[in-house]
């Protein structure tokens, strides 16, 4: 019917690009191997073949990973959520107050009070997420600035609600959610695993996830294809805040206290996990499993260095170095492998 002579495109994914794509898992294997050798020499014990170590690392990874899951969506959409750390803190404080209120005033049992605290704590993050989304989608505030504003607001709100301190919770059930185990698996880790699987599904198998990728590549293309980019942006920042809320509410269980600064050190870890996991800060790429690997890379460094008795401050240098290497790999990949190949 036509004589157009467009040759078959030679769009193959080169082996090098595959390696670059899986770099977070390579880092992880490399790190685990390094610590394996190191602990065997230093402590005469295995690093990897220790249930205790694995549990500890998984718990270490769970909070930054919860934040990182929402942050993955945000970063793929070419945004960033800086408010996440203190949104988590706010949720932690509100959850503690709510659980106490449930126990003392509403006559709840410890199980009901724990669930009530978690629900209210998570709900408390909804306004933060909606305001973030509204600032960015409707008022066209750059994500960096809009969420930095919300960082301040939620930080202040969290400290005010906690009267500048931490809010203790005396609820065994709540404590069990934060510290308990089902068999060898810590509850916290199981909940995080469920969140990973659920959000992997959302990102890779639903229209919402597909639109997040499209928006990250080109807002104009998404919008011209009939996608309501404003609504999408609101949903993305809402999801991010809610994941912060879940992390905060679980923190309260783990430490039996709500703390405004619960997520302060975790914000940068969450971004680092996403970037180490192979997402580009320019948007358009990233996966949940990449972020999982990224979070474990950070947790292995943090835990491993403690185990071999290295000054803990080295962990910042190690994580920082891996972030820089990841970004360099991403840029190189864009330039030489993944970019447009015009003939």
């Amino acid at each position: 019917m036509t004589t157009a002579a467009v040759p078959a495109p030679s769009a193959r994914i080169s082996p090098l690009a595959q390696v670059a794509r899986l770099r977070a898992w390579l880092f992880l294997i490399l790190l685990a191997a390094t610590f394996e050798v190191w602990t065997r020499i230093a402590n005469g014990a295995s690093f990897v073949l220790s249930v205790y170590n694995l549990q500890a690392i998984a718990i270490f990874a769970s909070a930054p990973l919860m934040l990182g899951l929402g942050q993955t969506f945000v970063i793929i959409s070419a945004g960033i959520d800086l408010s996440l750390g203190f949104v988590m803190g706010l949720a932690s404080v509100v959850a503690a107050h709510a659980a106490n209120f449930g126990l003392a005033r509403l006559g709840m049992g410890p199980a009901e009070a724990a669930l009530f605290g978690i629900a209210v704590g998570v709900l408390a993050t909804v306004p933060a997420g909606l305001v973030n989304g509204w600032l960015i989608a409707v008022l066209k505030v750059p994500p960096f600035i809009g969420t930095l504003g919300m960082y301040g607001v939620s930080r202040g709100a969290a400290y005010l609600l906690a009267a500048g301190m931490t809010v203790a919770v005396n609820d065994d059930w709540y404590g069990a959610i934060g510290n308990g185990r089902l068999g060898p698996f810590p509850v916290l880790v199981l909940l995080t695993a469920v969140a990973c699987v659920a959000l992997h599904y959302v990102l890779s198998q639903t229209r919402f996830g597909q639109h997040v990728y499209a928006m990250g590549a080109s807002k104009a293309a998404a919008s011209r294809a009939g996608i309501d980019v404003r609504r999408l942006t609101m949903k993305i920042y809402l999801l991010s805040a809610v994941m912060g809320g879940v992390a905060g509410a679980l923190y309260t269980g783990r430490f039996s206290a709500g703390a405004p600064q619960a997520g302060e050190p975790l914000l940068l870890d969450s971004i680092a996990a996403v970037v180490i996991g192979g997402a580009s800060l320019f948007g358009g790429s990233g996966t949940i499993w990449g972020t999982v690997a990224g979070a474990f890379v950070i947790a292995v460094i943090q835990y491993g260095l403690v185990l071999v008795d290295v000054e803990p401050f080295w962990q910042f240098i190690a994580v920082g170095g891996i972030i820089i290497v990841s970004v360099l790999v991403d840029q190189t990949q864009r330039r030489f492998l993944g970019g447009r190949v015009d003939e």
């Binding site: 499209a214 294809a225 358009g284 790429s285």
Partner: peptide, 9 residues
Amino acid sequence: QDLSLADNL
């Protein structure tokens, strides 16, 4: 002119 494609898809 810019095609309105999402390059990553």
